[in-house]
Nucleic acid binder design. Sequence first.
DNA 1: CTCGTCCCCTGGGAGC
DNA 2: TGCTCCCAGGGGACGA
Length: 272
Amino acid sequence: MRGLRPQLEGACIVSAEARRRDLRFPLPDGFAGRLQGRVVLSLTRRAKYILIRLDDGWTWLSHLGMTGCFRIDTGPYSSDSPHTPEQRHDHLILGTDRQVRLVYNDVRRFGFMDLIPPNGEGENRHLAALGPEPLGDGFTAAYLARALAARRTSIKAALLDQRLVAGLGNIYVSEILWRTGITPRRDTATVGPIRCRRLVAAVRAVLEDAIAAGGSSLRDFRHANGDLGYFQHHWNAYGRAGEACTRPDCDGRIRRIVQSGRTSYYCPRHQR
DNA sequence: CTCGTCCCCTGGGAGC
DNA sequence: TGCTCCCAGGGGACGA
């Protein structure tokens, strides 16, 4: 979103072509046509969604899924070659009035897009039930303690649930739990005020470190300009099954388990 | 309601 | 080299 913003805010979408009718879900009716001619007012983020506000009052909502990626292509373009070299899995191609093209590429097509009518963001089916932002003021130890007390599940599943806190994914939950010394299997009922304080601090620390490193490039993640992220080199737990725990004075070995269909990595020695 | 399971899809890597 | 199997950052639809 930060990579797209300087290129798109204030730009007019002069051409729009959707190469398929659906990604994870069907695109809205007449999607490309409804983008064409619009001026982009602003880009913001909520949870894992990018919200692109348009000059007709509608909001273009985008979720990248697992492999979705917005790419900014800069020219030069010529009259015989108005399109940049096409890449496999380019699904949406937008031309702007700034010699810049916006291309949405998504190998697995788990990403999706929606158009939200004016003043309709609060009731949009994707946004309505989202919990607080993990880096916002609403995500406090007191909030977390109350939210966890109302559930019967593992702390891993709870932190991944976007209704509890919106924006944590599988990699970062493993890292957060490693950092707090809490096993992903721990029942939410046994996570009290002290652990909640540590969790809130760890959520902020891990996310801020990851953002500073430009995110995690596992296979597909790229910035809008094609750059890779580097946070994967900082992982302490995720993807390190069998390796020695990197915490000082811990002689544990990272273990991989599956919880509700997702992998968790943790150190059974210092995560309890 | 609230859980866990399965599934959407493609491609990369491991193992044979 | 080529086949098969397993696995992957997310989250919605189900059924229990």
